[in-house]
Design a binder for these strands. Structure first.
Lengths: 342, 342
DNA sequence: ATGAAAGCGCTAACAT
DNA sequence: ATGTTAGCGCTTTCAT
């Protein structure tokens, strides 16, 4: 059998309590005892029994708070599925998940929701934060209360956190650029429809895309970069304007929300199948566009995995006191075409 | 707090032992007691505490046997990393992993190795099986001993198993076909280098590829399909022959092993950058070819995840008695280009 | 058929 | 600073 805390106690000639104190840095132990106990533990290659740890800790009635800006954003459908899956899995550990969904990016509302969750005595928080200093302050406060924080899909600067789960946005853009380069065989005039220049993820995608075009595809020109603010109606109008004003455009890169609106414009103008179109993510509508050959390829970010992993990260910390290896857990930028959806 | 076996016992006016017997179908309980206990459990929505279950069961000293045909096959490097990661994670549960690596596809050797592992008293088996009836028989025997079997990367027909973890080979081929269609803009003469017509995964890839070409790309011709037997030397020779005998070929699809040898031939002939090349998997060498623009894209199958998930599947069964939702856990067919590697 | 109780390894409250 | 002990929820053995 594996070595236990009890064996160490016997060998060191102390009680199990003392061993526990040393091995978990609870303090209040003599230098001497600490040294011998640590030595013995190392010699015997002691590995705490996680099941026992978990069981002993299980009185606490744990709830994980989840706060996502998923309202009206179909991208989050799969993130939520991932969260639900994780929730189901950890139900056997009697851990609850309290989920709050917000629409839009209102700082006040997000602050309020965080406070609400904290008042509910959550033991961990998963959040898609707005990149704002007020939020950052609040999250640090939460973290200092001993409530681990995991940022999901979007990150925020200047906070102490357990980890971030999401994609590498720059690589996402680069991948889209390379893809467009290949399918146009290096000749194209492209229009970019981004979400907002104030959203870090969006600008990083645009930058990555342009980098690749500049470095590898001299005969591809970026004609215009327009903002859609993740809104279908605006995307529709911008796309129409873009295509009508720049007849030379024969490729589009949608790197944020509002894609459905944009495609609607393309269809109305009768430009489907005439333009090469690269998008991001694979909502149900985008899948349809892929099937129909209207969208050539889309660069996805494993939304299900994002939701699932974020919860599991908190879970592992709470139950097993396990920390992630890296602070930033990047999901793959997956290129999808007609045949490798799902 | 959540409902426990003890509460049910009190409500039913029986002992915890009896509740345990009923809830785990151990038999030896009166009809009457059984009925009331089940009713109460259902009413209270009883969910066993998995940590407690695991702890109580933890005396048994569990070892998971792993048998992979990884010898001399760089594809398996990442599968092994995934296995190692899972191994590390479950070490805290005092579960050991005993790994045996085999080279080639010799039935006798695989049988022998299975027996060896079983003699070691393993509690679960992860295997890349040869699709052969003798192996199938043996695996059924193992399964009937109460040792759950998970097939990894390759599957086998006619066995009872806990699950299969690997990719959908047909979709892999279809994806490659679509990709080639797009980057050649539908005009190409392509040579296919497969592994062996006797390997299910390989033929499924070829079939998927051809399906898509036939249905969507009338101006793409498949000139030849040659076997490499996953061997670099043979792949080298076949590629040379292929390209010299068919000067019209301007695209290649490598859908199995031996890719390094094939690329060597391409380079020697000075055809790099003149051919569009699609491969499978992303070994270190293939990554280099992508960086250099020699290979255009590769269709991968999440090897790390395959290794990791296979172990976790067995783990969840052994520790928590959890069954997978589906027998076939397909990994994504991930298209990778220069910029979305890793 | 059923109950009682010891134990899995660790934690935490209390005692010294 | 250190020891003692009663759990955590479930399984299993031994009585009855």
């Amino acid at each position: 059998m594996a070595v236990t805390i009890r064996q160490i106690a016997e060998l060191a000639g102390v009680s199990r309590g003392t061993v526990d104190r040393v091995l978990n840095n609870r303090g209040g132990v003599s230098q001497e005892a600490e040294k011998t106990i640590k030595r013995i533990a190392k010699e015997l290659n002691y590995k705490p029994n996680l099941m026992a740890k978990a069981l002993a800790n299980s009185q606490k009635g744990t709830t994980i708070g989840v706060l996502v800006n998923s309202g009206g954003n179909p991208f989050f459908d799969k993130v939520l599925l991932g969260i639900a899956k994780a929730q189901e899995e950890i139900a056997g550990f009697h851990i609850k998940v309290k989920k709050v969904e917000l629409t839009g990016y209102n700082i006040e509302k997000q602050l309020y929701a965080i406070n609400q969750l904290v008042d509910l005595q959550i033991s961990g928080l998963v959040i898609t934060p707005i990149n704002d200093s007020t939020i950052a302050e609040k999250l640090n406060e939460v973290n200092n209360k001993g409530i681990p924080v995991v940022t999901l899909n979007a990150d925020i600067t200047g906070i102490e956190k357990l980890g971030f789960v999401g994609c590498n946005y720059e690589k996402s853009g680069q991948t889209a650029g390379e893809l467009l380069g290949q399918i146009t065989q290096g000749n194209a005039t492209v229009g970019i429809l981004t979400g907002s220049n104030k959203m870090l993820g969006h600008t990083m995608r645009v930058d990555g895309f342009q980098q690749v075009i500049e470095q590898s595809y001299p005969n591809i020109t970026v004609a215009r970069i327009l903002e859609t603010f993740d809104d279908d109606q605006i995307a529709y109008e911008q796309t129409k304007k873009l295509l009508l004003e720049n007849q030379s455009i024969n490729a589009l890169y949608y790197c944020a929300g509002g894609i459905d609106g944009g495609i609607k414009a393309v269809l109305e103008l009768g430009y489907a199948h005439k333009l090469k179109i690269i998008t991001v993510d694979d909502t149900d509508n985008i899948k349809q566009y892929l099937y129909q050959g209207i969208v050539n390829a889309t660069v996805c970010q494993q939304p299900f995995k994002q939701g699932y992993d974020a919860i599991k990260l908190v879970f592992n910390k709470l139950i097993y006191n396990q920390l992630p290896e890296k602070k930033h857990l990047y999901t793959q930028n997956e290129i999808k075409v007609k045949f490798n959806l799902d």
